[in-house]
Every structure is written in structure tokens, then in C-alpha cells.
């Protein structure tokens, strides 16, 4: 029995499809992802079915499931939380609160009360869009 001699494959024909796929992935990540800082990645924001205004979690006040407040990656004590809220009191932009979906309402309410007492009027809660 005679076997055909083994043919060397040429390198070219595999590199171009590879580049195509990599290019496609590059374009996908360029368009689908965003380069914004996600401050709320430590918590799971509650899902919401209602269409609301888009927002980012940049500079958000993060409240984790245990009720601890975080800002900019640092845990806040009562004093620093009040100082942060007082600094925000006169500002026009809304105070973004990113609360964990498992946080008890009491924890959220105490933060809201503190914000209200500090004079912050414009407060929004960050939610994720639910996938139906």
C-alpha cells in the first residue's frame, strides 16, 4: 500500500480567518462594552422592568447588603458619610445611590434619612434593566 506523502500546509490560510475573528471580537468589545468606571461592581443593583433614564455608577454612594456605605472604594463611617452628604447638599446633580438588592429597607431608609437631613434633595436609586 502506498500512502500519499504528507503535505505541508501553508501558514497563510489559517492566519487570515484568525485575524478576521479577532477583529470581530475587537469591534464587539469596542461597541458593547463601555470604559466607564463601575463603582457599584461590589453590589448587585436591584432589577427593574420599567424603562428609566440611563445612568452610570460613577461617583455613586454604594450601600452593600449589610448596610455599610461605600464611596470611591472606601468604606464610610457615620462621620464621613455625613460629611459627604453635607458636601453634596448644594449641588444640582443627583446623588446616586447604588444599593444591593438584598439590602433591608431599614438600611436604605437610614441612608435616605441622613441625606434628607443633610439637605440633599435630588436622589436617584440605581437599578439594572431586567432581562425578561
Amino acid at each position: 500500500m502506498r500512502l500519499k506523502p504528507f503535505e505541508r500546509r501553508q501558514g497563510r490560510e489559517t492566519t487570515i480567518p484568525l485575524i478576521n475573528v479577532v477583529f470581530l471580537m475587537l469591534i464587539f468589545f469596542l461597541f458593547a462594552g463601555s470604559l466607564e468606571k463601575d463603582d457599584a461592581r461590589g453590589v448587585t443593583a436591584p432589577t427593574s422592568l420599567t424603562q428609566r433614564d440611563r445612568n452610570t455608577s460613577d461617583d455613586a454612594l454604594v450601600v452593600d447588603a449589610a448596610g455599610n456605605a461605600w464611596h470611591d472604594g472606601e468604606e464610610l463611617t457615620d462621620e464621613t458619610l455625613l460629611a459627604l452628604l453635607a458636601a453634596r447638599a448644594g449641588e444640582d446633580r443627583p446623588l446616586k445611590i447604588a444599593a444591593d438588592e438584598e439590602l433591608a429597607a431599614g438600611g436604605l431608609k437610614s441612608v435616605l434619612r441622613a441625606a434628607r437631613q443633610a439637605g440633599v434633595a435630588n436622589i436617584v436609586l440605581l437599578t439594572r434593566k431586567a432581562t425578561p
Binding site: F29, S34, L35, Q51, R52, D53, P94, K96, I123, L125
Partner: peptide, 19 residues
Amino acid sequence: LLFFMLASTFSRYQAAPLS
């Protein structure tokens, strides 16, 4: 590709007004 894969986030948030 590596840069965009590692640097991008996919989470999008919406703002529900509380005030």
C-alpha cells in the same frame, strides 16, 4: 482586543428617582 476585553464593563444602570 485584550485591552478592551479587560477594561470594558457591561453593566448598565438606570436611575430611579427617589426624591
